[in-house]
Amino acid sequence: MRSGPLPKIGGKLRELRRRRDLGVRELAARSGISHSTISLIERDKMSPSVDTLGAVLDALGTTLTGFFSDLRSSLPYSPFYTSSDLVEIGKEEAISYRVIGFDHPERQMLVLHERYAPGADSGQEFVHAAQEAGMVLSGSVEVTVGDQKRILKPGDAYYFDSRLPHRFRNVNNGPSEILSAITPPTY
């Protein structure tokens, strides 16, 4: 898996404080965190605990979630992925789910290259709050959605509300592959 640099939070924290026209000592008084600790955090000389950072951000009128989502969106990333960059989240021997764009800082969908061994079955029908679409690239896959069932071959596709019970089963003698997308990425 590719891993980029961890975001440095000090500069962003200092920017928020200055934008609010606060000095370090004033922020310390408002947050209950010592001015020396805030200074060390702003210079990236200290990694704060979640509680410490939360107290400082509360005093600045923002949240941990907002602070980090803004930081993540500014991280550099490549829009291209080699085969070795795809992160495996399945059981490689039966069903392989390789994620495309796993480390994208603002990923809002799950894109998978799925590979099913002969006879592989996703198991009991499952549900999750999303929409799901895919296309069979090779082999033959039996897809069950609610009370409907169909065998899909290369070029055949599906699109359904994932809150309906669904299941995938390779009915081919060899491996079968699907390229799929799920949004939001709840699976």
Rank of each mutant, 00 (worst) to 15 (best):
Y158L: 04
I9G: 03
Y158D: 03
G54P: 03
S31K: 04
A94I: 05
N173V: 11
R17M: 11
I151H: 04
D85Y: 02
M109L: 05
R2N: 15
R18D: 12
E142K: 13
P7M: 15
E106C: 11
A59Q: 05
S3W: 13
T183H: 09
V99M: 04
E142P: 05
E114S: 11
V24G: 06
A29S: 12
R169V: 13
F102A: 13
L57K: 04
N170Q: 07
L40T: 06
P184H: 04
N172M: 02
G101L: 04
A28G: 07
D161P: 05
F67A: 01
G174I: 01
E42L: 00
E92D: 11
G146I: 10
D85C: 06
P79N: 10
Q108W: 07
T62A: 05
A129G: 04
Q108G: 11
S3F: 12
P7T: 14
T52V: 14
T62S: 11
T183I: 12
D70G: 15
S138N: 12
Q124T: 15
A28T: 01
S74W: 01
L152K: 03
E114D: 12
S78N: 11
Q148G: 00
D70T: 15
G54W: 10
G155H: 06
R107I: 07
D121Q: 07
T63W: 02
S3L: 14
F68Y: 11
S34P: 09
I89T: 15
D58F: 14
R169C: 03
A181M: 13
R30Q: 15
A129C: 02
G4D: 05
S96M: 13
H113D: 06
A28S: 14
G11W: 14
V56P: 09
R169E: 06
L16R: 13
V141A: 01
D44H: 06
G146S: 08
G134C: 08
G61I: 06
V99T: 03
G101H: 07
S31I: 00
P154S: 09
D58Q: 14
L13K: 09
L75A: 11
L40Q: 14
V87Q: 11
V87H: 09
L112A: 06
I33H: 00
S96C: 10
L75K: 13
G119T: 00
L152G: 06
S122I: 07
S47G: 14
P5E: 15
S180Q: 09
E26V: 04
P76M: 07
G90D: 02
V141C: 05
F168M: 03
G146T: 09
D156L: 05
A133R: 06
M135T: 15
S74M: 10
T186Y: 02
T37I: 14
D85A: 10
P79L: 10
V143N: 01
